[in-house]
Design a protein around this nucleic acid. Structure first.
Length: 180
DNA sequence: CGTGTTTGACCAGCGC
DNA sequence: GCGCTGGTCAAACACG
């Protein structure tokens, strides 16, 4: 189980292609990896993300050494929650200052995995969703396991296997209300 | 009945 | 010290 610099395997695929090949409605516009002592949110998360890492390379941080990272990206999507192949359990919802939209808090529901995900709509452009991942999964995505088990040889050679599996999973689930 | 969501309460950190 | 804000907890509830 090796996760490169991404806590979530499909991030690289997100970033690499920038547009979800299966769903043109979903577009990753901004991507940012925060340092462990991240200075993420000034009053405007989306703007800080845009200014710091727009269309740049994925920044390698000390997450590899510390085992903790925060990754945020902005996605153009009508869906609040994107199905990234992991199983999330919602544990909180808060309306935040300076934003008319509530912020939703999710935890990875896999045992022993304490990765958190925060989802909120961009206050300046509600068509965008800001997703923040906090932590690194200590397990494979359930859909990766499924995919590797059932379809081991259908991976495009240029794409990260887990990412492709995730997208395959998304293709299969995102259009069917993602019941898992 | 098991699992996930909702939502109000609670707590900690921070600025004044 | 106090109030504000963000983050988490946990009981109640909904659903398959």
């Amino acid at each position: 189980m090796n996760y490169p610099e991404n806590p979530n395997p499909n991030f690289s695929y997100f970033y690499h292609d920038n547009i979800n090949p299966s769903n043109p409605e979903i577009e990753v516009s901004d991507y940012l990896v925060f340092d462990d002592g991240f200075d993420q949110e000034d009053s405007s998360p989306s703007q800080s993300m845009v200014s710091s890492e727009k269309n740049g390379m994925i920044k390698k941080t000390k997450e590899d050494q510390v085992g903790h990272s925060r990754v945020a990206f902005r996605t153009k999507s009508e869906l609040e929650v994107m199905d990234d192949g992991f199983k999330w359990r919602k544990y909180g919802k808060k309306s935040v200052k300076n934003s008319p939209n509530p912020r939703n808090y999710y935890k990875c529901s896999s045992g022993g995995c304490n990765v958190k995900k925060i989802v909120e709509r961009d206050r300046e452009d509600p068509s965008y969703v800001i997703t923040t991942y906090d932590g690194i999964h200590n397990h494979e995505s359930p859909c990766v396991v499924y995919y590797n088990t059932h379809v081991p040889l259908m991976l495009p050679p240029s794409s990260p296997p887990s990412a492709s599996a995730n997208w395959a999973f998304q293709n299969a689930t995102s259009h069917s209300s993602s019941s898992f």
